[in-house]
Amino acid sequence: MSNNQADYFQLFNLPEQYAIDVKLLEANFRKIQSASHPDRFVNAPASEKLASMQQATLSNEAYGTLKNPARRAKYLLERRGIDAVADTNTALPMDFLMQQMEWREQLDDAKQAKDIESLERLYLQLRAEAKAMEANLGELFDVTKDDVAATELTRKLIFIDKVCADIQQAIEYLD
């Protein structure tokens, strides 16, 4: 298996850049999924069965990566040899970390108070922040091609996604 070298953009016939044609991504994903569907390989030799399964797995992983803005940004950086979430890199701007702390505190307080409304408000606020960051990422990756700034913003976006996931989890738990 050559999953590590597989080029997710090439797989879906997309140019390697941050801004993507989501409709084209989805259409090409469905094409691959249907071409590699197990039903088509019921009577095929074992080697073809295996190959189609690997293709289906790869396209799932590739689709999930390119569809999600934070994962797409992280993947673009990986392709350039940059690990945006390296364990050894713990530095982020102080004001961003302060903001992180505040969001985490709000999340904890609302969770303890079983205040679903506050959780939902916080979630919407963070999604708006993420949206603005995603727009900026398009500029940094595709226009100014500033890898350093793109890496920092990608790290921030991954952080926000993590808080959002935790808020969602808290809401589901309380519901």
Partner: peptide
């Protein structure tokens, strides 16, 4: 000192 790890979302002050 404030640091953070995006991979797991940890923040430490």
């Amino acid at each position: 000192g404030m640091v953070g790890a995006p991979a797991c979302g940890d923040v430490m002050k």
